[in-house]
Computed example of a mutant assay.
Amino acid sequence: MRTSIIRHSLYATTLMFVFAATPLGQVMAQDAGAHMQQSSENRTVPDKAADAWITTKVKSEFGTTKGIPATDISVSTHDGVVTLSGTVASEAQKDHAERVAQLVKGVKSVDSSGLTVGTAPPPEK
């Protein structure tokens, strides 16, 4: 009987600490979120990694999307803004590439001003 009371007391104490630690974890997460909103000159490695992931994902989407000449379009990303440059065969290809890039998770906006319409080889199949 005495062991049962001690065991219940330990469980209650453990639960109390767990519930007390939960708000502390939320505060720490909010604090971490505030630190993530830094200026671009103070970018952290995770920010750069996110940009690299976005660039890779956009290039991958271009490579698997019919009608986009993936090898003729360069992609770079800075703070979630994707910049496209290169040459496409038509205004429709330019618009299509911009739409595909915009659909990638994490992309804030797409700048396709460096994408020129001209004579480009036919798209890969």
Rank of each mutant, 00 (worst) to 15 (best):
R2M: 12
T3M: 07
T3E: 15
S4M: 10
I5Y: 06
I5K: 14
I5R: 10
I5A: 11
I6F: 03
R7S: 13
H8S: 15
H8N: 15
L10F: 15
Y11H: 15
Y11W: 15
A12M: 13
A12S: 06
A12Y: 09
T13S: 15
T14I: 15
M16P: 06
M16V: 14
F19W: 04
P23C: 02
P23N: 03
L24Q: 05
Q26A: 11
A29N: 12
Q30D: 12
Q30H: 12
D31C: 08
D31T: 14
H35T: 13
H35A: 15
H35G: 14
Q37R: 14
Q37I: 12
Q37S: 13
S39I: 13
S40Q: 15
S40M: 11
R43C: 06
T44P: 06
V45S: 07
P46W: 04
K48Q: 12
A49T: 10
A49Y: 10
A49E: 09
D51Y: 02
D51A: 02
W53Y: 10
W53L: 06
T55C: 10
T55I: 06
K57E: 09
V58H: 01
S60C: 08
E61C: 05
F62T: 02
T64L: 13
T64V: 13
T64E: 12
T65I: 06
T65Y: 07
K66Y: 08
K66N: 11
K66I: 07
G67A: 06
I68D: 00
A70G: 07
A70S: 10
T71P: 09
I73P: 00
I73R: 00
I73L: 03
V75Y: 05
S76M: 02
T77L: 02
D79M: 08
G80N: 08
V81P: 01
V82H: 01
L84G: 01
L84R: 06
S85Y: 05
T87C: 06
V88I: 07
A89M: 09
A89S: 13
E91H: 09
Q93M: 12
Q93W: 02
K94S: 07
H96F: 06
A97K: 00
E98Y: 00
V100F: 04
Q102M: 15
L103A: 15
V104G: 00
K105N: 08
K105D: 09
G106I: 04
G106S: 05
V107N: 01
K108T: 11
S113P: 03
G114D: 01
L115T: 00
G118C: 02
T119R: 11
T119A: 10
T119G: 08
A120Q: 03
P121H: 07
P121F: 05
E124G: 11
